[in-house]
Computed example of a mutant assay.
Amino acid sequence: MTDTTYSPYRCLPGPLHAIVLAGTVPLFLGGLFSDIAYYQTYLIQWTNFASWLIAGGMLFCGLALLFALINLLRAPRKSGRATLYFLVLLVTWGLGWVNCFEHAKDAWAVVPSGLILSVIVTALSAVAAWIGLTNLRSGAPA
């Protein structure tokens, strides 16, 4: 049995938190692949795919951010890793929001800024998932 006094959270993130956190990576990655396909083919439908995938990634990232905020506020002792996890998710969501606006432009205006933002947001979502799924559920001292 683990001692909960060392846990940075009052209650550990549940399965729903893990699902929405892990769901951000493939959605943002799909948006990135769609941007790459548009960059190579200039078929406008790829930007539509990217817009929808990024919107789905934003929904999942927003839910994970909400779970992280609630868990951070309920924590009896603030952990550096928990705060870092929240901040990385916040930056991911913020840049994803900018990426959504970028993809709302005309298809020809999306390249190269939309592609660059997709690379950054995908990398940040992978880092957030790595931090959140390895350290926050271990219950070990941070």
Results as ranks from 00 to 15, higher is better:
P26H: 06
V91W: 01
V25P: 10
A50V: 01
A50H: 00
Y38H: 11
A129E: 09
A128N: 07
Q45Y: 15
S34W: 01
V98C: 03
L32M: 08
L59T: 13
A128K: 10
G96M: 03
V111F: 15
S34V: 01
R137D: 02
A104S: 15
I116E: 12
L16C: 06
V121Q: 04
A104P: 01
T134W: 15
A37W: 08
L90P: 02
G94Q: 02
L27C: 13
D3M: 04
T41G: 03
Y6H: 12
M1T: 06
P112C: 03
G94F: 08
H103I: 05
R77D: 06
T4P: 11
L117E: 04
M1D: 09
R74A: 12
A75K: 08
L84E: 08
P76I: 04
I44L: 06
Y85G: 09
G56I: 06
P112T: 03
F101H: 14
R137I: 11
Q45F: 11
P15D: 07
D35Y: 00
A37R: 14
V20T: 13
V111P: 00
L133Q: 06
V25C: 04
C11H: 13
G62N: 07
N48L: 08
A55V: 15
P141W: 10
T2G: 07
F86R: 04
V110F: 00
L90E: 05
T41I: 03
Y85K: 04
F86Q: 05
T122W: 03
F33H: 02
P76H: 10
Q40G: 00
A126D: 01
G56C: 09
Y42K: 14
A50T: 01
L90H: 00
D35S: 11
L65R: 02
L53V: 00
P141H: 11
V98P: 01
G96E: 03
I19N: 02
Q45T: 11
V127A: 15
R77H: 14
M58E: 14
G114N: 00
S79R: 01
L59K: 01
L89G: 15
R137H: 12
A64G: 09
L87I: 14
F28W: 07
S51R: 12
L59C: 08
L63A: 14
L43I: 09
S51T: 13
S79T: 05
D3A: 05
P26E: 04
P15H: 11
V98G: 00
A104T: 06
A50L: 01
R81N: 02
N135H: 11
L53Q: 11
S79A: 10
M1H: 10
